[in-house]
Every structure is written in C-alpha cells, then in structure tokens.
Amino acid sequence: MTLTGPVLLHLLLLLLPVSARYFGHIAENSPVGTPVSGVLLPGGSHLNATLTGDYASDFRLVHHRDHRLGLVSAKALDREFIAMYQLTVQLPRGAAAVQVEVSDRNDNIPRFIGGNRTVEVHALTPLGTELARFDAKDGDAESNGRVTFYASPESHLLHVAPQTGQVRLVRSLLGVRQATLRLCVRDGGSVALIGDPVFLHLNVHRSGNPRKPRAVREDVVLSVSVPQQAALGDLLFTVPDQRFQQRWFQMLSEADSPVQIERDSGRVYLTRDLLEPAEVLLKIHNSRGKKRGSL
C-alpha cells in the first residue's frame, strides 16, 4: 500500500515524542481567538488532548490542517491580572508544559497619588527651594509604565522636574500673593496616555514686621533628573531662567557625570549611556558683571 503525503505526515507526527516545554506569547486585550505565538505541538485531529493549569480556561486548543495543535485565547487577557501562564497539554503520548507570556499594551492611564495641594510659602523663599513633590502610578510595564510630569500651561515661577515630580521655585515671589500650578502626567507609550491633572496652590505671605527684602542669592542649586531612556547627545534639560541679569552655569556632580552643561546657555546634554536613572547637581552663578572664573 502506498501512503500519500498527508497520511505519511500524520503518521510521523503520531510517532514523534512530545517536547518537554513550549514558550509562547500573546498581547494583552487581543481579540478572542487570537493564536498564541510560538506554541505548536505535534498532535493530530484524532487525538484527545486536554489543557490544564491555573486559569487554563482562558485558552483553548485548536487543531491545524498539518496535524499539529495550537493554542488560542478564549477571552481578552489582562496582563495586570496574569502576566505569565503555566499550562500543561495532556496527550496520549505524554504531557507538554506550555508557558504563555502576556505582553504589555499601553492600556492604563497614569494617575496621581494624592490630589490637589495647598502650600504656604514665604515671599522671600530662596530660589531653587523645593515646594512640593508629586508622585503618580501607571499599571503598565516597562516604558509604557514610565511617567513624566509637566506643567500645563508652563509657569514662569515654578519648574517641574519631569522624572521626579519635584516642584521648585525659580522666580522671586515678591509682589505675588497667590499662584496656581496645573500639574499633568503622561506615560511613555508610543501614543502617550495623559492622566487627570492636579493643582498646586501657593499662598504667599510676609512676616508681620516689614523688613528690607533679602538680596537674591548669589548661587542657586537645582536637582535635575536624567531619564533612563535618553540617548547619547540628547538635550535633557535647559536650566530655567533666573532673575540674574548676568549668570553662568556649573556642574557640581562628580567627574564621571553622565551629562555636560553649556556654560552660557544652561543646556544639559547626555554624554554616556545610563543603566539606571541618575541625578546630577547644577549650580547657577550670579556674576553681576564680575569676571567669570574657570570651572
């Protein structure tokens, strides 16, 4: 008897041993019936295969025309609920372990931890002072879950550190009674999701006994966060404008700092790769017409 090609292939698949472990992946929130990539087992349309494991009902086995078994989703999967499935396919010739990873989609909106704030601040508060620090969370993974803070609209009085949520004073509060900052947060998805804003309200006050205002500090120190995903040569930050008529900028961090600053413009550039987020310290000098010394 001569065996045809499909029949011969089917017999060969029946004789093949089942591999010990399979690895597959599927994007979260994929439509029901989406195949799990990387999972094809030697099976056959006549084999009685079963799927077991925690939440195995989230998937179902399907038979292919080439006499192999595949796995498809039986519901929309949520990575935040289960990121990795450990399943077992029971076959007449043994069992195969199947691990399915649910890859992340940017489907969580970042949210502030805590709401609006009101801060009492003195009119003579030094420039560079941190007035508040906000935090936010995002349920997505990796870059999709990285949050960035910013003011909308931008404020001439306050600077928001994009990576840390710090709010610092960058202009004098003399003559200001109240100020409001609208603080926003977005995630790092290719199409960024933006959360609901919060507001920082400043109530500016002076002491009971009038006194001569202090002179502006000769130096202002700022903390600048460097995002982990930045590339070499990227412009990371421009030091906010100050009331100094003449000024220059200096890096106070150690010699192997991952960034460099332009002395005259205050622009900060990344000069080496980062394995994790880092912080550098900058200093603003008020030259007021004096000869600038070397760094």
Rank of each mutant, 00 (worst) to 15 (best):
122 H>R: 12
122 H>G: 09
123 A>E: 13
123 A>G: 04
123 A>F: 07
124 L>M: 09
124 L>Y: 12
124 L>E: 14
124 L>V: 07
125 T>P: 07
125 T>F: 07
125 T>C: 11
125 T>N: 13
125 T>M: 15
126 P>A: 11
126 P>W: 08
126 P>V: 05
126 P>H: 07
127 L>V: 14
128 G>C: 07
128 G>R: 07
129 T>M: 03
130 E>H: 08
130 E>Y: 12
130 E>N: 12
131 L>Y: 08
131 L>F: 12
131 L>K: 15
131 L>H: 14
131 L>T: 13
131 L>Q: 06
131 L>R: 12
132 A>F: 10
132 A>N: 06
132 A>E: 14
132 A>T: 11
132 A>R: 11
133 R>S: 05
133 R>L: 04
134 F>H: 15
135 D>N: 12
136 A>I: 02
136 A>V: 04
137 K>W: 12
137 K>L: 11
138 D>R: 01
138 D>T: 01
138 D>P: 05
138 D>Y: 00
139 G>S: 07
139 G>P: 02
140 D>M: 02
140 D>A: 01
140 D>K: 00
141 A>D: 02
141 A>F: 02
142 E>A: 13
143 S>A: 08
143 S>E: 15
144 N>S: 08
144 N>E: 03
144 N>F: 13
145 G>F: 04
145 G>C: 02
145 G>N: 01
146 R>T: 00
146 R>W: 00
146 R>L: 01
146 R>Q: 02
146 R>I: 00
146 R>P: 00
146 R>M: 00
147 V>W: 01
148 T>L: 11
149 F>V: 00
149 F>A: 00
150 Y>V: 09
151 A>E: 05
151 A>M: 12
151 A>F: 02
152 S>L: 15
152 S>T: 07
152 S>Y: 15
153 P>T: 15
153 P>G: 11
153 P>E: 09
153 P>S: 15
154 E>P: 13
154 E>I: 10
155 S>L: 01
155 S>D: 06
155 S>H: 04
155 S>Y: 02
155 S>K: 01
155 S>V: 01
155 S>M: 09
156 H>E: 09
156 H>T: 14
157 L>R: 14
157 L>W: 08
157 L>P: 06
157 L>D: 10
158 L>G: 02
158 L>M: 06
158 L>V: 09
158 L>C: 05
159 H>K: 06
159 H>G: 05
159 H>P: 01
159 H>S: 10
160 V>P: 00
160 V>M: 15
